[in-house]
Computed example of a mutant assay.
Amino acid sequence: MATMFLAATSLGAGGAIAQAQEFESITLLAPAGPGGGWDQTARALQAAMTDTGMVRSLTVENIPGAGGTIGLAQFVEREKGQGDAMIIGGLVMVGAILTNDAPVKLDQVTPIARLTGEYEVVVVPASSELQTMDDLVAALKADPGAVAWGGGSAGGTDHILAGLIAQKVGVDPSKINYVPFSGGGEALAAVMGGHVAAGISGISEWIGQIQAGTLRAVAVSSPEPVEGLDAPTLRETGIDLELTNWRGILAPPGLSDDQREGLIELVDAAVQSESWQETLQTKGWENAYLPGDEFAAFLDQENERVTEVLKSIGLVK
């Protein structure tokens, strides 16, 4: 799709005239099914960007599969050089690219901004005989293959956390029975239906079911207890571990400097909006905003870190 924008002027500091881009349309691609963290992030950004008044029309598109790598490949092929589309990504995508040996890598897209950080929660069905994290660990030690873990795509944050938990309690991470799902809604259904023994996800995806009592939270991956979540930290259960899932937004390859800067300005305005600030508070997302070049540098470091983690738990050779 062709980039369409108008120049909008406003008075900046000292009365100087500042240029800003007004976009005719923006497409936000969530490379996962509805209901998951990427979908929630895309729709929250849709509302925040609408608040800025810089975009006339915003569309969210879902392309699920393979930890976001299917959507990423389509995005790069379809949107190359176009300045009116962005894709949501994050730690899950970094891991999925490595474990799937995906043909499209993150160095083929244009980093716009890191947006949020979110802690992971470990849950069991409310009716489960496993009442605590100690119970879950005991079952895992007794027979790792008999304990099915449900979560997001293979190699993503949820899978990484399951492997790290196993490693920390003395179980071979390669022996864990991890069942990947392409979206938070599918994983939730599997946990609530008792098709897996335990589930792992970002807090915001399952907090409603936890508070309603249909899921029992047995641990959270934060360094400190999380307000509104009745669950101990992993460290409080004796597992010396914490993990934060970050999410960000990327643009296609082949953009001009003006196209890239226009999208960075749009996202910068969106994250300062009242709508976005309310979303951070209601969903319990940490503000991890890091724009442009800083985000690009972070991505390089994160790729190295995740590669080492996945090798240590046997997911990457």
Rank of each mutant, 00 (worst) to 15 (best):
G37M: 13
G145H: 00
A198K: 01
T110V: 10
A44S: 15
V309T: 15
L188G: 00
A48T: 08
L115V: 09
Y289H: 13
S273D: 02
L45P: 14
E61K: 14
E236P: 08
E24Q: 09
K141W: 08
E304R: 10
I63A: 01
Q209C: 11
S182F: 01
S128F: 06
N62L: 05
L72V: 13
A146Y: 00
G314K: 15
A73R: 13
A30M: 14
V267A: 04
M93E: 09
S57P: 10
A217Q: 04
V196L: 05
W38G: 15
A47Q: 15
V306H: 07
L115D: 05
P34Y: 08
E186R: 00
M192H: 04
K105W: 07
I203H: 05
D84V: 10
G81H: 01
K175D: 12
G199A: 01
Q301P: 11
H195M: 12
A47G: 15
A187S: 00
I249W: 05
A197I: 01
Q301H: 14
Q82I: 02
G36F: 12
I176H: 08
R43V: 15
A73N: 13
W276Q: 05
V267G: 03
I264T: 04
E61A: 13
L115Q: 05
L136Y: 06
D101M: 11
L98Y: 12
L130R: 09
S25M: 02
M133D: 03
A162G: 11
G14V: 05
T52G: 07
V121G: 11
A102P: 10
G238K: 05
D293C: 02
L310M: 15
S25V: 02
N62D: 09
I239F: 03
G67I: 07
D107E: 12
A138W: 10
R247C: 06
D135V: 02
G199Q: 01
A7S: 00
G314I: 15
D230A: 09
M86I: 15
G33R: 02
A139R: 14
Q40N: 15
E308A: 12
R235F: 02
L250M: 10
G95L: 08
A47E: 15
A269F: 07
V171S: 10
D39H: 03
S222H: 08
P252D: 01
L255D: 08
V76G: 04
A297C: 03
G202V: 02
V196A: 05
D172Y: 05
T9S: 00
L299A: 11
G208P: 13
M54W: 08
N287R: 08
G185P: 00
T50D: 11
A212Y: 04
I207A: 15
G156I: 05
G170H: 07
L234T: 09
E304N: 09
K283V: 06
K311S: 15
M1F: 13
H195L: 13
V123F: 06
Q167G: 07
L164N: 08
A113G: 03
L266R: 06
F298R: 09
G262R: 03
E205M: 12
D240L: 01
V309D: 12
F295I: 06
L72D: 11
E61L: 14
E186A: 02
